[in-house]
Amino acid sequence: MGYGLYLYGIFPPPGPRLHIQGLDQQPVHAHTLDGFVFLYSEAQQERYLASRRNLLGHEKVLETAMHEGHRTLLPLQFGLIIEDWKAVGQQLIEPHSPKLHRLLQRLEGQREVGIKLMWDEGSELQMLLEENEALRAQRDRLEGQTLSMDQVVSIGQAIEQAMQARRQAIIQTCQAALNPLATEVIENDPLSDVMIYNAAYLIPWDSEAEFGQRVEEIDQIFAGRLRIRYNNFTAPFNFARLDQLD
């Protein structure tokens, strides 16, 4: 028994024709509706758990289409199941058709890449104290003493401000190198305590090699201090949101 249509993404016509399986090993099909091409498969579950396997399966369908040359697309959020094509028209196309067209135009010839910067806070703190003689001396003077609350707060604030300045200097170096190559930049919240920067970039397709080279240069500048996670091939999830056009 099917539970409706599981939708992966929207493409301009003629759209891709893929010979692959999507979620639950269901064949992926294309359906054209009112000037949009939808990639879909038959939903075998009423609701899909956002597991790693399912998320990767969703993304694989879109990335396969991109690898085959269908680079302009609107990826739909994971887990979107709609009853039938009439419901797709009523719930998605009729209320949002102009915005969907604008988003497709905005993304034509563009690709999303992403960068995440991680550091070792303990190592950075040690480097800070080695480099900042005044701060180190202030800390050393307090060692072995019973500290008042004011003293604890004072040294804590001084260290936190200095660490924030180090963090911001790294981020600004990254922004200065990468932002000029981007059509748009979206800065997202860090995903962990060790992550200090998390950004998505919309760039022209043919500029990825230069962008990747600049990421390598950032890695060399901060050799040993950062772990850089660079994703150079992904569907443009960060730049395909309807609310960005309000």
Rank of each mutant, 00 (worst) to 15 (best):
Y3W: 06
L7T: 05
P13Q: 11
P13Y: 11
G15A: 12
R17D: 09
H19F: 10
H19W: 07
H19N: 14
H31R: 14
F36K: 05
F38G: 00
Y40S: 01
S41H: 06
S41I: 00
E42W: 10
Q44N: 08
Q45N: 10
S51D: 04
N54P: 07
L56R: 12
L56N: 06
H58A: 05
H67P: 05
T72A: 05
Q77L: 10
F78D: 02
G79I: 02
L80Y: 06
E83I: 01
K86N: 12
L92Y: 03
H96P: 00
S97A: 15
L104A: 03
L104V: 05
E108N: 09
E108S: 11
G109V: 04
G109P: 04
V113Q: 05
G114H: 06
M118I: 05
W119I: 08
S123W: 12
M127D: 08
L129Q: 10
E130G: 12
A134N: 14
A134H: 14
L135E: 13
D140H: 14
E143L: 14
L147E: 13
M149C: 06
V152C: 02
V153H: 13
S154H: 15
E160I: 05
Q161N: 13
A162D: 10
M163I: 04
Q164T: 04
A165K: 15
A169C: 08
I170N: 02
I171W: 06
Q172G: 03
C174R: 04
Q175H: 09
L178K: 14
N179A: 12
L181E: 03
L181M: 13
A182T: 02
T183C: 09
I186S: 05
E187S: 11
N188V: 01
L191P: 01
S192P: 05
D193C: 01
N198T: 04
A199D: 04
A199G: 05
A200H: 13
I203D: 04
I203M: 07
P204L: 00
S207C: 03
S207G: 06
S207F: 00
E210Y: 08
F211R: 00
V215L: 01
Q220L: 10
A223H: 05
R227W: 04
I228V: 10
I228E: 02
Y230Q: 06
N232L: 07
T234E: 14
T234Q: 11
N238A: 14
L242W: 03
L245T: 01
L245I: 00
D246P: 03
